[in-house]
Amino acid sequence: MSEPARLARARTVAELLDAAVTLPLVGDVGIDGIVGLLPVAGDWLIVLPSTYIVYQGYRLGMPKRTCLWMLLLVLLEAALGSVPLFGDLLDVAWKGNRRNVARIERHVSAD
């Protein structure tokens, strides 16, 4: 798979997870924010597609240390997302998948 295709897939997954729909008064909400409403399990279901973004970064040559940091943020978001109410607000506001794609984009553009 080519570099632009990998980056495009990572972007698509991040947009679905973090900003699939726009709600009045709330703003962009993705699958992460919706599935995260399921107590505990919802947040952990999102770990797999979020990890796919990290994997694409790894395949694009991101340093291992940065990939580990991105993975740590995915796991931290899942753990904190499991906290009632606070976790739901975090899922809507944090947009961690978009942040990870931005890291990948910075790495790719620096090459």
Rank of each mutant, 00 (worst) to 15 (best):
Met1Lys: 13
Glu3Gly: 04
Glu3Thr: 09
Pro4Ala: 05
Pro4Leu: 04
Pro4Asp: 10
Leu7Glu: 01
Ala10Thr: 07
Thr12Cys: 04
Ala14Ile: 02
Ala14Asp: 03
Ala14Tyr: 07
Ala14His: 03
Glu15Ser: 06
Glu15Cys: 05
Glu15Lys: 06
Glu15Gly: 03
Glu15Trp: 09
Asp18Trp: 08
Ala19Gly: 13
Val21His: 05
Val21Leu: 11
Pro24Gly: 07
Val26Asn: 07
Val26Arg: 01
Val29Ser: 04
Gly30Ile: 13
Ile31Gln: 14
Ile31Pro: 02
Asp32Phe: 07
Val35Glu: 09
Val35Phe: 01
Val35Asp: 12
Val35Arg: 13
Gly36Met: 07
Leu37Asn: 12
Pro39Met: 14
Pro39Gly: 10
Asp43Pro: 04
Asp43Met: 08
Asp43Lys: 11
Trp44Ile: 14
Leu45Arg: 06
Ile46Lys: 11
Val47Thr: 12
Leu48Ala: 15
Leu48His: 07
Pro49Leu: 01
Pro49Val: 12
Pro49Gly: 06
Thr51Gln: 09
Thr51Glu: 05
Val54Ser: 04
Val54Glu: 07
Tyr55Leu: 13
Gln56Tyr: 04
Gln56His: 09
Leu60Ser: 13
Leu60Pro: 11
Leu60Asp: 01
Gly61Tyr: 10
Gly61Trp: 09
Gly61Pro: 02
Met62Thr: 00
Met62His: 02
Lys64Cys: 08
Lys64Met: 13
Arg65His: 12
Thr66Val: 11
Thr66Leu: 12
Cys67Arg: 06
Leu68Cys: 03
Leu68Met: 10
Trp69Tyr: 11
Met70Leu: 13
Met70Gln: 13
Leu71Ser: 08
Leu72Met: 12
Leu72Asn: 08
Leu73Trp: 12
Leu73Gln: 14
Leu75Glu: 05
Leu76Ala: 15
Leu76Pro: 02
Leu76Ser: 10
Glu77Thr: 12
Ala78Ile: 05
Ala78Val: 09
Ala79Phe: 13
Gly81Met: 00
Leu85Ile: 15
Leu85Tyr: 14
Phe86Tyr: 14
Phe86Ala: 15
Gly87Cys: 06
Gly87Pro: 00
Asp88Gly: 11
Asp88Tyr: 06
Asp88Leu: 09
Leu90His: 13
Leu90Trp: 14
Trp94Gln: 07
Lys95Glu: 00
Gly96Asp: 11
Gly96Pro: 01
Gly96Arg: 11
Asn97Ile: 08
Arg98Met: 11
Arg99Val: 06
Arg99Ser: 00
Arg99Asn: 05
Asn100Cys: 04
Asn100Gly: 00
Val101Thr: 02
Ala102Val: 01
Arg103Ile: 03
Ile104Phe: 02
Ile104Glu: 02
Glu105Ile: 08
His107Trp: 15
Val108Tyr: 10
Val108Glu: 10
Ser109Pro: 01
Ser109Phe: 10
Ala110Gly: 08
Ala110His: 12
Asp111His: 11
Asp111Lys: 15
